[in-house]
């Protein structure tokens, strides 16, 4: 996994609340292979018209925001379907950090597993940052994971909370499965105990 430490990049504001993962990547693209061109599916039905041409009013299609790597969203960003493809499509387009007042839980969890950082800030703060980004298209922001701070376009710094486990994984680009396999003895002991305490869950011992 990519590590995440510090990111200074253009940020794009997305004002709508409840942006669901169906909108981030429609279901009909979920069987498409990831890899070159995958970014094409991101926000597909709001980004392109029926002929496949860009809709100029969609903010990601506007020149100053094209290079954005930070997305500043509304409430409940990434709600709905568990599809990790939503994170993959955002990642393919270049996004590495997401800032919102709240996120869909599964989306939030999947971000960290793909080297991207979801950040929760108070609704007022996020709305203020979005206003600045509209007023100064193409403005940059800084996301610094070691110090857990976001610097807005106006230079104001905001602290954010991050789970220490997730932080460690992101900073080091840790392979989580390898980490868990390091607990092999504990898992094996747990299984032995569970199979005795709840034998009906062991196939072949149901009766």
């Amino acid at each position: 996994m990519d590590a995440f430490t510090r990111l200074e990049a253009v940020a794009v504001p997305l004002d709508l609340p409840n942006v669901d993962t169906d909108r981030i990547i429609p279901a009909r693209f979920l069987h498409k292979p990831t890899g070159p061109g995958y970014e094409r599916y991101l926000f597909h039905d709001v980004r392109f018209d029926a002929n496949g041409s860009e809709k100029p009013d969609f903010i990601l299609n506007q020149a100053p925001y094209r290079a954005a790597r930070i997305l500043v969203a509304g409430d409940n960003f990434g709600c709905g379907s568990s599809r990790e493809h939503a994170v993959w499509a955002l990642h393919a387009h270049g996004f590495r950090a997401f800032i919102a007042p709240s996120f869909g839980d599964i989306f939030f969890g999947s971000c960290g597993k793909n080297g991207t950082l979801p950040i929760v800030l108070p609704a007022e703060t996020v709305a203020g940052i979005r206003r600045q980004l509209h007023a100064r298209p193409g403005a940059t922001m800084v996301v610094d994971l070691p110090s857990q701070t976001v610097t807005g376009p106006d230079g104001a710094r905001h602290d954010f909370a991050v789970d220490p486990f997730r932080k460690e994984c992101l900073l080091t680009g840790q392979d989580e499965i390898a980490l868990t396999l390091g607990h092999e003895a504990a898992i094996a002991a747990f299984e032995a105990k569970r199979d005795v305490e709840s034998p009906w869950l062991v196939p072949g011992k149901r009766a």
């Binding site: 568990s82 599809r83 990790e84 999947s110 597993k113």
Partner: peptide, 22 residues
């Protein structure tokens, strides 16, 4: 509960998941 694709891989490999109590 529902999980993402990376977590599916994690459970296949380890039968466990890292979770924070909701």
């Amino acid at each position: 509960f529902g999980i993402g694709s990376s977590e599916v891989e994690h459970v296949l490999a380890t039968q466990c998941l890292w979770q924070k109590k909701p």
